[in-house]
Design a protein around this nucleic acid. Structure first.
Lengths: 240, 240
DNA sequence: TCGTACATACGAACGGTGTTCGTGTCAAGT
DNA sequence: ACTTGACACGAACACCGTTCGTATGTACGA
């Protein structure tokens, strides 16, 4: 990436365009730019106009390479799914490996702000999301889980990961600084605790007696809790 | 509801307004109207302008009663939660009752199109969603489930219901007619099956061998499957 | 009964959105 | 050198959430 800003136009070099040597537009650079905006400002900031502006052009230019905003979102989702690393399959350790993949998928998805909103309720079609599904299905089938159960398990597992990331994204909000956790706690958690504590105890007797447990649990704890229950349940369908 | 359309204005009755005897605007009628639009055309159709138009006024008038569109959405969500019927608590049947509530919540949420998108990732604050939470917590605590586990369980359960309804909403789309199921099958399921069948078997060997199981399972089957696993997992934390 | 004060209603506008159309421009093929 | 076809993009359309200032009807005090 050379930086020619500040250089005057050489004489005789009639600029062939307003922006000389324009970068070739393509679906890839559009998705790239979308990911940059996403990571910096969240999914709602990823608009056609914003991405076009970032590329130094207008929104109409994008539609030659991306069918619609939703299609761009799906391409971004598959791009993110490409970052999910899969271990070498080891059928003997299928439960551990399924948990590994779930954690890894959660980590990657959560690292891209609220991108998970796209994947929840979207039918997996991209090559990378299918790659994950194939891995999980192979693991389950290798463990002797029936087809019907394996199919439902993969669906439910993806749903669980997506939903958890979405829930986590409404807190964090994306600010990942050194004292981000403290700020989040003060600004988000504390008001909720106060609200719950102020609830009428005669109407919600059990709830007000559990405020600490309700607002206190870490997102990681809750994820691991649900994942463990789910995997134990699946294991009950395995032979042996 | 009388119908005075077609009647001329009686002489001497100067209309006090352009729309005589205007109905009083209030948060309640705004939420009512929002629910009507939601049920008819889906959440995306519920815009400030659309609701205002339905009420024969402009969008600015709504802001005297509802703080923002998001607040309207939350009010609508709580209104829907009011329709969830809870059984008489019976601690001895806590597992069955928890399943009952989950099914009932799913039924009600699904009957309002994609309203579930609002509730996923929203902190429960409305009186009606808190009423559900209180019921579930009381049931779990009554069964001897530890506070920490019970808190995570209701969180996860609500998340599961919401995510399932959202996933279901991208199919159905809301069209609930006599032959709706057949149409959905032809227009949505069949293309997906075709796409999966056309996938390269060398890259996705396990997946292409399970197409029927992947696209075939009913939404109800899958929900019951996950719910059963989850409740069995929770039960393992109960004493006895 | 009249005048005033107040809460509500709302027209108009601001700055944004996704998407389409028609035109313009470039580079490769003949 | 000329044609052709793909791509870029300015302008516009029809929406969106939200705010501001003004108009209006009602209730109340004098």
């Amino acid at each position: 990436m050379s930086d020619d800003s500040g250089m005057p136009t050489p004489p005789g070099h009639r600029p062939r365009r307003a922006r000389p040597a324009r970068r070739p537009l393509s679906a890839d650079v559009i998705v790239d730019t979308g990911m940059r905006v996403l990571d910096a400002e969240g999914l709602d900031a990823v608009t056609m106009r914003r991405v076009a502006q970032e590329l130094g052009t207008g929104p109409a230019s994008l539609y030659a390479h991306v069918g619609s905003k939703d299609e761009l979102y799906e391409l971004m989702h598959d791009r993110a799914a490409a970052q999910i690393r899969l271990p070498e399959p080891d059928p003997a350790r299928w439960r551990e490996q399924l948990a590994e993949v779930a954690f890894e998928a959660r980590r990657v998805l959560a690292s891209h702000r609220d991108l998970a909103r796209v994947s929840l309720g979207a039918i997996p079609v991209g090559p990378n999301v299918l790659r994950i599904a194939e891995f999980q299905l192979a693991l389950l089938r290798g463990a002797g889980i029936p087809k019907r159960i394996a199919a439902m398990a993969v669906d439910t597992l993806a749903m669980y990961v997506d939903a958890d990331v979405i829930e986590g994204a409404i807190f964090g909000g994306g600010a990942t600084g050194p004292d981000a956790e403290r700020t989040v706690h003060e600004n988000r958690i504390e008001p909720i605790r106060a609200y719950f504590n102020a609830l009428p105890p005669d109407r919600y007797p059990t709830l007000v007696g559990m405020v600490d447990e309700l607002v206190g649990g870490t997102s990681d704890e809750r994820f691991e809790f649900g994942l463990d229950i789910f995997l134990r349940g699946i294991a009950s369908y395995a032979p042996s």
